[in-house]
Design a protein around this nucleic acid. Sequence first.
DNA 1: AAGCGACTGGGACGGGTGACCCAGTTGGAA
DNA 2: TTCCAACTGGGTCACCCGTCCCAGTCGCTT
Lengths: 198, 198
Amino acid sequence: MTRIPAPERRAALIEAALRVISRNGIAQATTRAIVAEAGMSLASFHYAFDSRDELIDELIEAVIEHARHAIMPDELPEGTLVEVLEAGIIRYFEHLKADPEHEQAMLELTQYALRSPDRHPQARAQYARYVELAERSLEVAAERTGSQWTVPIARVARVLVAFTDGLTLTWLVDRDDDASLAVANAAAVALSRMAEPR
Amino acid sequence: MTRIPAPERRAALIEAALRVISRNGIAQATTRAIVAEAGMSLASFHYAFDSRDELIDELIEAVIEHARHAIMPDELPEGTLVEVLEAGIIRYFEHLKADPEHEQAMLELTQYALRSPDRHPQARAQYARYVELAERSLEVAAERTGSQWTVPIARVARVLVAFTDGLTLTWLVDRDDDASLAVANAAAVALSRMAEPR
DNA sequence: AAGCGACTGGGACGGGTGACCCAGTTGGAA
DNA sequence: TTCCAACTGGGTCACCCGTCCCAGTCGCTT
């Protein structure tokens, strides 16, 4: 095995851990499985990290950092607010379909964090980040369609996150594309009611 | 320890397992933890069940069987369709707040089932049950408010399940009651758009 | 070119897991 | 009242887990 400085190894291990969790679930993300995925020995793991817990902590921080691509596209389609919102949600849905295991991993990570008091703040931070991204997209959507939000945008964003979460969870279970498109449309309709023409 | 026939023991163990999962998460639901919760010995466990897997299987079946109380109340408030829908979702939300750990356990069970091909059908069945319950409530709501669904009711129900799931997941993370009420309202508005006066 | 510190591999440890076994005990049918 | 099958307790198994240790090796700096 070639020699790799510890910081790079940490990054490589975090990536490997994420791959393992995506493929097999967090329960299977043992130090041995992670190390095998990264092609390292156990000693390298404990040289880079004090403990598995520390790896998981950093993993969550990392996924918060480069969280899912903004829920809305950069280049927005033309149209009414509802249409733009729906297009944005559908774009997220396409992203979900392209890599379902990743979103499933995110969900598991959240549930995992929720189970220990020490990590609960991390779950909150993860969702705060989602809301922040949603907020930014909603701002753009309103601006482009000549609308303005009549409800605090943070609140609108929080609702959007709830809707996309529900879309994700239910789709992961039944993989019903049509139903999810209906959810996307209904969500867009609901959100558009929180804005008015400017 | 008093003697208990195997079928009763199975039931007692399933209940104990659900309590353990609610309290500590599915990862902590080891045979020993379950047995301790039920006040039994390990031998009694393996007398009643062939394996831990079998217990989990039956546990999921059991929760599907007596799934969460209908999402909507039996006695509906007076009002428009939107109001009735919103009241129903809020009722579910109250139920969630009263026993968050139970809903968290349900979520974990779903995620768990999703991770093994053998159990995926169980997750589907769980959600099919949710949709069925939602459907029944939506029927009543439309009838009482003199409305009729313009979209197949199964589809409306599926959207409702997605919305309540999103509400649940996000609330479990940030425990923001006001935000969840906003979600409930937005969901009710969106759903009401799928019906017309009769 | 020498030497030191960063890094590696392999093996080992204690602890927890699911499963199992078997010698006992007890309730209820005969 | 007898006795057998249903049930129990406790001990044990092999396995996997996270962690640790230590003897070796490689690359940088001087």
